[in-house]
Design a protein around this nucleic acid. Sequence first.
DNA 1: CAACATATAATGTTATAACATATATTTACG
DNA 2: CGTAAATATATGTTATAACATTATATGTTG
Lengths: 149, 149
Amino acid sequence: MKLEKEIQQKEFKNEFHKLAVNIIYTHSWLNSYQVKTLNEYNLTPQQYNILRILRGYHPKPATVNLLKERMLDKMSDASRLVERLRVKGLVNRKYCEKDRRRAEIIITESGLRILDELDRLDKELEKLLSGISQNEAHQVNNILDKMRG
Amino acid sequence: MKLEKEIQQKEFKNEFHKLAVNIIYTHSWLNSYQVKTLNEYNLTPQQYNILRILRGYHPKPATVNLLKERMLDKMSDASRLVERLRVKGLVNRKYCEKDRRRAEIIITESGLRILDELDRLDKELEKLLSGISQNEAHQVNNILDKMRG
DNA sequence: CAACATATAATGTTATAACATATATTTACG
DNA sequence: CGTAAATATATGTTATAACATTATATGTTG
């Protein structure tokens, strides 16, 4: 639906202004969906994000810094996020022997199993976004990549 | 820059999957900019959003519910957001005489003045997004509107 | 090697988000 | 009219985000 209608605003100053609002609004729309789905697994989107990064490294460990860099939301408190996942048994943390400042974080079998189940999310996501074609999604991806410079 | 490079991920399963991540990432990118700029005025993006809605109604009042509906982030706690703006002297709140459950909220002169200053943000935003053309912004807007159904 | 700088993670603190519940008022209905 | 349902907002509570600070280990340099 046209953004103007959804937030009941008559018009935008220009397409850039609308785009900024559109990204915020669409993110909120997408995030609500994700929160709702992940809630069944007692995970937040950020925790899910971390688990996926860790799966990408498995069975090699990742450090807290590495997680911070790769996370979508840069400002987040990776150290305590990891701790919450550890309490849930989804990751292990031990200290690196070569550099004892570092923590080595590895996703557990239990964490991998949950991610496996959650892979169905990708299918549902495609359904959620099915109002547009792969080609249209591709166009948006290209333009957003270009926009951020 | 290509999203794959920015978050150091080799590839995405498909364009829909990348699009979801791209929206989250681009939102975070945009939000950081907004937080940084609004911080000089001691405002959060949500408070800024509310002030702009109120300006749209001025000099007519808005209710808390109306703000909730029109806000970009639907889940937010409009009642306390308004209270924070009231403490800063940017809005007035009084009770509606016809329906004493309702609050009537009006932006103050001081609030309007701050918004005036902040209108330069729109110019800076255009600069921030200037990697793409108006036409490309328009394309993204159309596709996102279509995607949300 | 000592002293200082840097890197990495954990912790402290405050404000806010998210969710549930409470309060007050109005509306609906038998 | 009196009671129940619905509506509008405010408040309580808990977890988290955001930012600053601390703790510990490693690197660098004179």
